[in-house]
Structures are given as structure tokens and as C-alpha cells.
């Protein structure tokens, strides 16, 4: 569904993406993990047209979308959410979600009705008339999800929608993501919460210092020594392996 080929991007001296090649198949949930500053958000921005890559290409549904502007990519059915939530502050939750709904729906009444439906689906049904700017962090994350969902997308890129939530809030949101997947929307998600990565995703890509260092089913990937080193520093993989051997 999504094919990324040798995507490169640098900011001044920082190589935020170093020839990233990855694919996301239709349906299901794919995850993208990596330590802080690995270039995950940058990759999302490159895919969705917010940054133009220095080189490489992005194909979505078989078509080249590499240099398209964000709105054109969204119109084709791929929507991203933002790690730092970006509500339309001053507008109500309903109005916020309706902006998404308007991508496919012209009529105002219908868009507002759709916004209400989606709000219920993500658990914001009781806060429809609240100012989006006064939502809690958890509420804003749900709003990000709701706005994306309201566009009726084929694919959603979630950037850390679980970050900043407490365990019980995470437990509430995970089923929401599962429902979206079950409705046939392909999902690519960036996540630091390992428990969520394990339980949600079918396949995982690992990014470190702008490059893909591992891929595979989440359970296999997390025991990959490269991945452990990327997260915990050099020598850690060995030590963990030794300790596990010792305790076995």
C-alpha cells in the first residue's frame, strides 16, 4: 500500500533520514519504533508532504506521491496525526472533527453529524461542545485520532498517540485503534509504549539515527541485539543475553 524507497533528508548537518526503504502492506497495523531523535516524525513528515525529501520516492496505492503537498496526499486517503497535538484552539471539539469530515462531505449539517458519530467512536461523545484548547492531554490525543478518522481515510499514520497517557487511558485507547483497523483502515504507528507495539502491531520497523536497522514481527525485533543496543547503548545486548543465559 505504501512503499518508501531510499528516502533521504538532512537538516543542515543532521541526517534525519538516511536512505530509508520500507513498505506497509494493506490492512493491519504496522509500527515504527526507535529511540528519541531517530527520525520517526521526520519520516512521517516526508511521507505526508510536510517536508520534501532530498532524494528517494514515496508511492501510495501504486502512485508516486513524492513531491505532492500535504493536502493532496490527504485527499488521496493518507492522513497523519501530530506528536505534539495541534487542536484548532478556540473551536469546539465538534467543529474540530468536522474539519476532517469536510474532506469528503460538502454539507455542513452532514459534516457536523459525522463529527458527532466519530466523537462517540473515540470516546469524546461527552465533550462535543467543549473548547478543544481546554481538553486534557488524553482528550487532545483522542481528538487527533478523531479528526483523522473523520476524513474517511484509507491509511492513518499515528505519531505517538499514546505518549503522555496513563496506563488506564492507554487501555482505553488501544481498543479504539483496533476498531479502526477492523474497519479496514491501514495503520502505521510510531510508538514508544512497547506493550502497545506488541499487542497492536503485526509488523515492526526500527529506525535509528535516520536508518532502518531492523524489521520483523514485533516479538522478534525486540530481541534483536541491534535494536537493544540502539535503545540501551553499546554492550547492553551482550549483558542481557548473558544474564538471561545465567538465569536459565
Amino acid at each position: 500500500m505504501l512503499e518508501i524507497n531510499a528516502l533521504c533528508k538532512s537538516f543542515g548537518g543532521v541526517q534525519a533520514s538516511q536512505s530509508v526503504t520500507m513498505t506497509v502492506p494493506q490492512g493491519g497495523i504496522t509500527s515504527l519504533i526507535g529511540p528519541n531523535g531517530a527520525g520517526k516524525t521526520t519520516l512521517f513528515a516526508l511521507i505526508t508532504g510536510f517536508h520534501t525529501p532530498d532524494s528517494g520516492s514515496v508511492r501510495f496505492l501504486g502512485q508516486d506521491i513524492t513531491c505532492l503537498p500535504p493536502e493532496a496526499i490527504a485527499t488521496r486517503g493518507m492522513i497523519r496525526t501530530f506528536q505534539t497535538v495541534q487542536p484548532f484552539a478556540g473551536q469546539t471539539v465538534r467543529e474540530n472533527i468536522a474539519v476532517g469530515a469536510h474532506l469528503k462531505i460538502r454539507g455542513r449539517t452532514e459534516a457536523l453529524a459525522k463529527a458527532e458519530d466519530v466523537a462517540r467512536q473515540v470516546g469524546l461523545g461527552d465533550r462535543l461542545d467543549m473548547d478543544a484548547g481546554s481538553l486534557t492531554v488524553a482528550g487532545r490525543k483522542r481528538l487527533e485520532v478523531a479528526r483523522a478518522l473523520a476524513t474517511d481515510p484509507k491509511m492513518i499514520l499515528f505519531d505517538e498517540v499514546l505518549a503522555g497517557l496513563n496506563p488506564s487511558e492507554i487501555r482505553d485507547v488501544i481498543p479504539v485503534i483496533n476498531t479502526i483497523r477492523d474497519a479496514g483502515v491501514t495503520i502505521l504507528l510510531i510508538e514508544h509504549v512497547m506493550q502497545a507495539v506488541m499487542s497492536l502491531s503485526d509488523y515492526t520497523w526500527v529506525l535509528n539515527q535516520g536508518a532502518i536497522i531492523a524489521e520483523g514481527p514485533p516479538r522478534e525485533v525486540v530481541s534483536d541485539p541491534h535494536v537493544i543496543e540502539a535503545y540501551l547503548g553499546k554492550g547492553m545486548a551482550e549483558r542481557i543475553a548473558k544474564r538471561e543465559a545465567a538465569s536459565a
Binding site: Q86, Q91, R147
Partner: peptide, 13 residues
């Protein structure tokens, strides 16, 4: 209110 967020939702700013 937020041009980037609007564009991400398909709004041709």
C-alpha cells in the same frame, strides 16, 4: 487556527 493541522486533514490552505 493551525495551518499545518488543516493541511494534514486535506484542506488546501
Amino acid at each position: 487556527d493551525n495551518e499545518d493541522a488543516a493541511r494534514a486533514l486535506g484542506v488546501d490552505a
